[in-house]
Amino acid sequence: MKAFTYKSAASEADAVAALGPGAVALAGGTSLLNLMKERVIEPSVVVNLKSVAGLDKIEAAGDGWKIGAGVTIAALLENPQVVKGYPALAEALETVGTPQIRNMATLGGNLCAKTPCLYFSHDGFACLKRGNGNSCPAKDGDNEFSAIFGTVMPCVSVHASSASPALIALGARLRVAGSGGARELPVEEFFVLSKDDPARENVLKQGEIVTHVILGKPAGKSATYVALHKASHDWPTALASAALDMGEGDLVRTARICLGGVAPIPWRVQAAEAALAGKKVTPETASAAADAAMAGAAPLSQNAYKVKVAHTALKRAVLLAARGSWK
């Protein structure tokens, strides 16, 4: 790891001021430190956000909740209102890493973490996203775990965050603070798929941090299905989060569905949402929605199997949300 200066920020303003060029924010460190050890990220200044006052609070806000970016995943999972009100979020968080990782990892860090791509996350490979190469080595290399959507983009890594698809499905918003003050935006608009700058996956500018996640009124029905290889301590093969707004006669009024682990950013699938609108949720309609979503998939040489996995995750998330069981 390259030597760096360490600063502990006491306030939002402090953090923003300290995050000058070459500086990087540190939350739980479960992702960042690995990349620093591999020298994928070589900051000259590391700014600790865990010391920022109030960033670790879960507060009621109107009909919903305002969650500090520094709240750990373990703390969120121990909060009964969050778990009960937003099952899609809780079910996504339950499988993140291991208990040790969930004890350290924060929600803000989860939203901002970098891809676990085999090439990007290990030193020794020239990689477009890392900035030391001019093409994506996974494209015609080992792409078993790479993207199946958005693969025409220059980088085919998958986004790291398990929580983000749930937050997008739930229509959550983010509060971002920077030198010019704070702003709010939907989580969905936070993520960007950039042809010009494959290094980035969100809209944060130099000196900006995520301070809060704002959850609206608990959604009627929501769920996340995470497909794993190992039972624990593994990255999802694919995951899907669904939030259903139910109308009369058990018909879906609107659905919001987002996939994770399948594209360089969380991948909302409006085709699937449209396929469900006005329908009753059955294994057949759920599967049809998954078919609609997968029509847009363009797998790489080694990961056609992920289309099946993502299809399954979507179908099961929808069934889980509507009926409490996918079986």
């Binding site: 085999l118 080992d142 190992k230 593994d234």
Partner: peptide, 20 residues
């Protein structure tokens, strides 16, 4: 890596090991 022959998973994250 099928091109460079460098090991892609010299770790305990992607070199997957069974847990309990």
């Amino acid at each position: 890596d099928p091109r460079s022959a460098l090991m892609l998973n010299p770790d305990m994250e992607w070199y997957k090991l069974a847990g309990h």
